[in-house]
Simulated scan of single mutants.
Amino acid sequence: MKQLQNSDWFEQGLLKRLPEELRESFSQEQLSALKIAFGARKWGQHPVDIRGTLKVWSWRYYFVILIGRNKRELSRAEQKTAAFVQALFLLIFLTLSTLLGLLVLYLIKSAMGIDIFPHFSLGIWGWFKSNILQ
């Protein structure tokens, strides 16, 4: 049987899939030519690599979910999109953080009995007392 330890990842994968009687019939030159012909690319290991098929009535669909660090060079359009999405997430994060901070400060103010606007309430402290503190 061919030595799988000395071959590269493409040869190992190819030889594992072949019947044992055919593994010995390939020379190193033939294996190299097959690698070039198939345009072999090593996608690498991914932390999440989920592959499967779904059968819906008479059709079969496949799905692949790969999650890992992006090592590709991004095009200018992809860079602009990534920058926009990052800015959008940052804006959403800062907005939600600010609103949460204001809510906590309002609850602290109300718990201390501080009444900034007499005879006016947002109703948050009453709801918090009746539903959370009970």
Rank of each mutant, 00 (worst) to 15 (best):
G101D: 03
S75M: 02
L94N: 12
L31E: 01
D49M: 02
L122H: 14
Q45N: 04
P118Q: 03
W43Y: 09
R41I: 12
K2H: 13
F38Q: 01
W43H: 11
Q45K: 07
H46R: 02
L105Y: 10
T98L: 07
S121Q: 10
G39Y: 06
S97L: 11
S75V: 03
I50V: 14
L15C: 01
L91K: 14
Q45G: 04
G113I: 06
A40V: 07
W9D: 09
Q86D: 12
D115M: 05
T81V: 13
L22Q: 09
S75G: 12
F84M: 15
S75N: 12
F128C: 10
D8A: 02
V64W: 14
F38A: 02
Q79H: 13
E29Q: 03
W43C: 08
L74G: 07
L94E: 07
F117W: 07
V104A: 14
Q5K: 09
L107R: 00
I67W: 04
E78L: 01
L54G: 07
G101W: 04
M112W: 00
I114F: 07
V85E: 15
S121T: 07
L105H: 04
F93E: 00
S75R: 15
T95M: 09
F84K: 13
V56Q: 15
V56M: 12
S97W: 08
I67Q: 04
K16F: 13
Q12P: 11
P118Y: 04
L105W: 02
A40E: 00
S130N: 06
D8I: 00
Q5C: 03
D115E: 13
K16T: 03
S7W: 02
S7V: 08
D49P: 00
L22V: 04
L15E: 04
A83S: 05
F26E: 00
S25L: 03
I50Y: 06
T95V: 11
L31V: 10
I36P: 01
F120C: 09
G68I: 06
V56A: 09
Q86F: 10
K2Y: 09
R60W: 03
K71A: 02
R23G: 08
G13S: 13
S7D: 01
K16I: 06
R17N: 15
E24R: 01
I132A: 05
L34M: 12
L107K: 00
L100H: 03
L96E: 07
L34H: 00
E21K: 14
K55R: 15
R51L: 01
L4R: 09
L107P: 03
W127G: 09
W125P: 06
E78K: 05
W59P: 09
S121C: 01
L91H: 06
L99F: 06
A37G: 05
R23Q: 15
W9E: 08
